[in-house]
Design a protein around this nucleic acid. Structure first.
Lengths: 219, 219
DNA sequence: GAAAGTCTGTTGAATTTTCAACAAAAAGGA
DNA sequence: TCCTTTTTGTTGAAAATTCAACAGACTTTC
């Protein structure tokens, strides 16, 4: 586990906990590490919702696929970020979404029961872990607010521009990469792919944006 | 404060805490109670995000209004439910949404700083409060997942039917009331009001639903 | 009880999205 | 490198949404 320390230090879940204690804690929590190929389903929809996941390398997508096969991408989680914690913490019986590998990745999985219900050893970092989970979930809620701000717009153009402006703000630059290909961006913005491609071309012709592939620039 | 105990017992924030301790805690946290008329803005967008709110009576709406005046209703919080906790817990500087009184209501406001940073008295319920907040935020996250499941649908009809089916499930009956008038329902589903009205009529003519005003029935 | 104001359903026109199909470009594999 | 597969951009037609306007029903106020 020690080789993952550098990443785990950056993870909100372990903030305020000393390295040695993190190691001890992982043993206590029964953490396990698994590797996945690109597009592999790490946690399928309907699966028991007991694991908290931490991205050690690569990135994962949280997706919802409806009855007709329409995909929504709810979020992308990168290195050192946590996923599936809401379902585990809320103790719902099964996952209402799936988590898939966005690229080849390593993931740490922790059975959340060990976190929610005080462990036999009663290790002193339990409280800090709960506090960190609370902060993490608050941040997630804000992330969803932002996503709703984007998808509540009525036209593809407005959704796209709202998204790009938020990305620029996040990157602190008018020039930035986005973590989606066209189909994925459409599934995140909840719009049609071909219409999205057309809108990107149009915005470029109008001199409002510039882009090549996943690199965008606001003019 | 004692007169609010009956409601506070039902509030997730105080679960697992004895009545007398809740009273003590409220003093320690500097909780205050305020009353608001219908449509009054309880917490405006841009306001410092330091208060956690608890609905004591009536209900409140969490709304987002964009540059052009388009309103999105993010959620409705009823008696004994908590609001604005995500922003306070994430310690963002200002509210990205507004909270308004859906009907005349009483609201308890607690400065979240007192919860996040251990109080001088170091009262023993602090940890339980953090735990409860974590559970509450996990439930909120799941609520947003559901809202996204609804609004990610592409047509007014699909959004409406997805919403109604979730409401029926929640009510455990095919016959139920919804907490929105037509404009509010449109602002929750992210669709046009007139188109929504038309779709409701259409579904009724097709014998798929029945409704009068806010009462709906799935056939 | 009358008047003013709000909410709802309806309609038609304009706008936008979705859908399907295809070709060009890019990426991946042998 | 060549071939196959995937991704992207384009297009036109069909479908759906939005917008504006209005009338009737319902509420609220005086």
């Amino acid at each position: 586990m020690r080789k993952y320390l550098k990443i785990l230090q950056k993870c909100r879940l372990f903030s305020g906990i000393a390295d040695d204690d993190v190691i001890k804690m992982l043993g206590c929590l029964g953490a396990k590490v698994e590797s996945f190929d690109k597009k592999y389903t790490i946690l399928p929809e309907g699966y028991p919702a007991k694991y908290i996941g931490i991205v050690l390398s690569g990135s994962v997508q949280v997706v919802q696929v409806d009855y007709y096969g329409n995909r929504s991408i709810l979020s992308v989680m990168n290195r050192a970020e946590v996923f599936a914690e809401a379902f585990a913490c809320a103790e719902v019986s099964s996952m209402p979404v799936a988590v898939i590998a966005d690229e080849p990745c390593e993931v740490m999985l922790i059975d959340c029961g060990h976190i929610l219900h005080i462990c036999a050893n009663n290790c002193g970092f339990h409280q800090q872990l709960i506090y960190n989970l609370m902060k993490d979930l608050a941040a997630k809620t804000i992330m969803f607010h932002q996503r709703i701000e984007i998808t509540s717009k009525r036209t593809t153009r407005e959704k796209l521009m709202t998204y790009l402006m938020l990305q620029a703000k996040k990157a602190e630059s008018n020039s930035f990469e986005i973590p989606f290909d066209r189909q994925e961006l459409a599934d995140y913005l909840e719009v049609d792919r071909s219409g999205l491609s057309a809108e990107i071309s149009k915005l470029r012709k109008e001199g409002i944006i510039n882009n090549q592939k996943n690199h965008f620039e606001l003019l």
